[in-house]
Write a protein that binds this DNA or RNA. Structure first.
Lengths: 340, 340
DNA sequence: GACTGGCACTCATTACAGTCGAGTGCCAGG
DNA sequence: CCTGGCACTCGACTGTAATGAGTGCCAGTC
């Protein structure tokens, strides 16, 4: 497959023009707008090759060319230069994230910021519980047979669960329970707690045993096993930009996918590290998103990811700009969380 | 304005047919589907009157009639009979809400349930902080100069805030602070706390004074004053049902409005009681929602509302069914929260 | 006075034909 | 290997005609 430099330049030009104008681009328009130094006819020949190789296609015979998913892929991998953020964007990021009062606030601000900067749909995963460690456990008596268990993670996440005790327990028993679980569990990663919890139950004094057992069950079942991951969304209105040309006419499948937390988590939460991933069109494993592209990355202090974030938009998107923005936001959020 | 019984029957028939078919309804079709006992010509005369009074209109001269917002209003106020829930729906509600592990879970399940049953966009407000009372306050030391303040409300809501202390405080000071704030504030409604907090600061011993002051500031500023209200959304994909006929072609304004928490809160969170409100089309004060209708109600254990919930859909919606569902879900949620 | 059948009229929708032009593929020549 | 030229394709647009659902009105009937 002989893709010489000029053919690549043509592909790049096609992608850039198409992203900008949203209209199929013809050979004549190309040579006018880009300094390719050759005639339209030559470009046409190059286009024919590019089409044969599957990088571009014609919507209909008498129309210009449009990049295929494969074309975008090549563009992203080899043709796009990193686009540095504008000072304005840089400032926007900083300004947006100061003054956040709690984790919820940080996440909400982040997702809105991301949606605003990229003008696409933004998704931010809350710091994963599985990768957090326990900072404090609190037991608040609701009644004599009910406790509220509150877990505070080092990332700032707070989860609460109602615990129905098998028998009434006096206040000082609650105090004992609280002391014990904190002594044993504080500081350890949530994924490492099961044996510790087990030990807690076995070592606990007889009068604490029943309460401790139910407590342990709630802890393991609702916090560790089905480690609740959460996400925040913003910018769905951006899906309507570009008329209904993007997403082949219907927003339905996209909106459906966005509402499935599980799906979204799979999409942006899989990353263990802070590398950036780009999924273009049908590279997507989720059928509903075959007409969309996703740019995602992990964020966290250092190179390990606490969670993922990303944006979703039409395959016809400004990849260099989007990638730069997603990375920048992730870095800022990572720093912000590291401060806590 | 002589709207005799038959004219009202005609209006009802028009609304019902139009909601069902989504197409302008003509005089002939009407007499065929409903037992009106008169000829099409007579119906036409009635229609002419209804149109003159502004209850229906013609999209174009040679088309059938479509209800206006005013027509829907009359229908809702005087013509619709309450539609009892089907046993299947009743069961769905019960099944959906058991097994919720915490407040977040309750809210998420509720909003999804509502979206599913009504096949529209559902909005659920978290129990309002302003109307909650304090169940417990916890202070977790992060470092010697940082505390995490965790407030647990009687509704199950948990809020956390970071407190930056002016000077390092030893552990037993934190214990003192914790005891003091709990003694003073537990049990009181959040809206009543300001004087209590004020008193706390003034009465506190000299060595606690500085820490207590900042603590009080955080409490008042981030929890009481800008009482953070939160909402959950679901079912946005339902906006795309009915093609793009509803919402006059663009989902844009609707999606934008849905993302503005403030707007949504105003829409569904204003109700102080558990009465049901129906806003039809341009009765809506929010411009973006002039093409939509909203059915909302307050929910809570008794007649006072802890928060609001509702659905948003096209003006052409099944009002009786939607109203019944919204009420039923609100009642169940109210009961569920009362159990905590 | 209220209802009805009949009839002329309106107008969105659909189908069809024709024109236009952007863009292509191919080829012969430099 | 590149280029100018040329025939060709086909979507977009325009204009016209046919279709038919639905109406408003009127004269006649109960």
């Amino acid at each position: 497959m002989g893709l010489d430099d000029r053919k690549l330049a043509v592909l790049r030009a096609i992608v850039e023009d198409y992203v900008a104008t949203q209209e199929p681009v013809g050979s004549k328009a190309l040579v006018e707008r880009h300094q390719l130094g050759v005639s339209p006819a030559t470009v046409r020949n190059d286009m024919a090759v590019l089409e044969e190789e599957g990088y571009i296609r014609q919507p209909h015979t008498s129309a210009g060319r449009v990049p295929t998913d494969r074309g975008y892929r090549l563009f992203v991998d080899r043709l796009s230069r990193v686009k540095p953020l504008s000072p304005a964007e840089r400032r926007a990021i900083e300004r947006f994230l100061v003054g956040a009062v709690d984790l919820d606030d940080v996440v909400h601000r982040t997702v809105r910021l991301l949606a605003q900067l990229t003008r696409q749909v933004a998704v931010v995963q809350y710091p994963s519980l599985a990768r957090s460690s326990v900072r404090h456990l609190e037991l608040v008596p609701i009644s004599t047979t009910r406790l509220m268990l509150v877990m505070i993670a080092d990332t700032g996440r707070v989860e609460q669960r109602l615990v129905e005790l098998p028998a009434p327990v006096p206040a000082d028993t609650v105090t004992d329970l609280r002391r014990l679980v904190n002594e044993k569990l504080v500081g350890s990663r949530l994924s490492e707690t099961p044996p510790l919890v087990q030990a807690l139950v076995e070592e606990s004094a007889a009068h604490l045993r029943p309460a401790m057992t139910t407590l342990a069950t709630v802890l393991l079942e609702t916090l560790v096993e089905r480690h609740e991951e959460r996400i925040a969304l913003a910018g769905t209105a951006n899906l309507t930009r570009g008329g209904l040309l993007d997403f082949q006419g219907s927003l339905r499948p996209i909106l459906e996918a966005l509402e499935e937390e599980v799906v979204m988590l799979k999409l942006i939460g899989e990353a263990e590290s802070t590398t950036t991933r780009v999924l273009i069109g049908d590279e997507n494993e989720i059928d509903n998103l075959r007409a969309a592209s996703v740019v995602s990355t992990g964020y966290g202090p250092g190179a390990t990811a606490l969670g993922g974030l990303g944006v979703l938009g039409p395959t016809r998107m400004d990849y260099p700009g989007t990638i730069a923005t997603v990375r920048a936001v992730a870095r800022y959020v990572g720093e912000l969380l590291a401060q806590n």
